[in-house]
Simulated assay, not measured.
Amino acid sequence: MRGLTRQQIEHYRREGFVAVPSLLSEEDIRLVDASTAELAEETDAERIADVFEFEHEPVDGKRVPRRLYNPYEQHENFRKLAADERITDRVVSLIGPDLALQHSKLNLKPARVGAPVDWHQDLTYFPHTNDDLVAVLIYLDDATERNGCIEVLARRHRRFLDHTLPDGTFAGRITEDLDEERYGAPVKVEGTAGSAIFLHPLAPHRSAKNVSVERRRALIYQYRAADAFPIYTGPHVVDVENCAHHIRGERSPVARFGGPQPVIYRPDGHPKSLYQLQEMSQK
């Protein structure tokens, strides 16, 4: 097994995340590039809208994509990578041998316009019966503060933070004051292409707008223990579960309950992505 080291596991448990350098090779990244380019060749307008989400700001007069929806569903190469033991062995170190893929996405963060992502906790979007989930965020380009690397509030993954607007609707972002005196300074997790961040589902994180001339792509696989089951918060859960897949080990016939008691938010409407939900709540 290529599991995490004891020190890495301890760091994850204590801080809510751990960074692993050189998880993927240059060849792996070239394969992802080729698969994404193949999907971008789609010419049907309806089909392309189901595959890519676009930035609001054009670059040189052209629309640029900011997200590839559900890459696992779109191409065999993404399915192979989701089950790659270099990734899943390390996930097993954190949440046990029986794994499912909860969802996947590829954030493209293009140069000069790559949209920001506000502070949030992943598990507020998809509460489960326990918190044994982990996101594996793999940088496909060198990630720096200027091009919008991930920032994490360390040691704040023990409880749900407030994500509601004054009228009680789900904002998709943390709405309580995250002053540094109380919560500490964010950790900017920079990394070279191929490095990965293993992120607890309650670790608050964000990324700034890409103000550089370099893109900053990140492939994200969200895994869950086989006995972590989604809690129904609306019909969108059914759509998400259609993209969930058992990956490794045994399936579980029972749900396990544990972790912080989840706050149950019901989104207003059916935004297709975190970007859209946060933009709606900002208005």
Score class of each variant (00 low, 15 high):
Q7C: 03
V18S: 05
P235M: 01
V117E: 04
E190L: 00
V113N: 10
Y139S: 09
V117N: 07
A37N: 13
A225P: 06
A45V: 13
S207F: 06
Q278P: 15
L133H: 07
V32Q: 01
P204M: 05
P204H: 07
D167L: 07
A115F: 08
E76N: 08
W119E: 07
R224N: 13
A83P: 01
K272M: 08
D98W: 03
R6Q: 14
R2K: 12
E176I: 05
T144N: 03
I197W: 01
S93Y: 08
L24S: 06
A244V: 10
H246G: 09
A143N: 07
Q74T: 03
E41G: 02
P110R: 04
Y232E: 11
D179R: 12
L199W: 11
H163D: 09
V32R: 01
K283H: 13
Y223V: 04
E27L: 12
Q121T: 10
R86C: 10
A244P: 00
E55W: 01
G234T: 05
H245N: 04
R159E: 14
T5G: 11
V18P: 05
F198G: 01
Y12P: 05
L101F: 12
L137E: 01
V240G: 00
H245Y: 15
E53F: 10
P110F: 09
L81Y: 09
T233P: 00
L199V: 15
I174E: 02
K188L: 12
T129A: 03
A171S: 14
R206W: 09
A34D: 14
R90F: 07
K105A: 11
E85L: 11
G61R: 06
P58S: 06
Y223G: 03
R266A: 08
T175E: 05
V113K: 09
Y183G: 05
D142L: 08
E73H: 13
V117H: 03
A228P: 03
I197F: 02
K62Q: 14
E145F: 07
P260W: 08
C243Q: 11
T169I: 00
R256F: 03
Y221I: 03
F126E: 00
T88P: 10
R216W: 06
L4H: 09
E55R: 06
D60R: 12
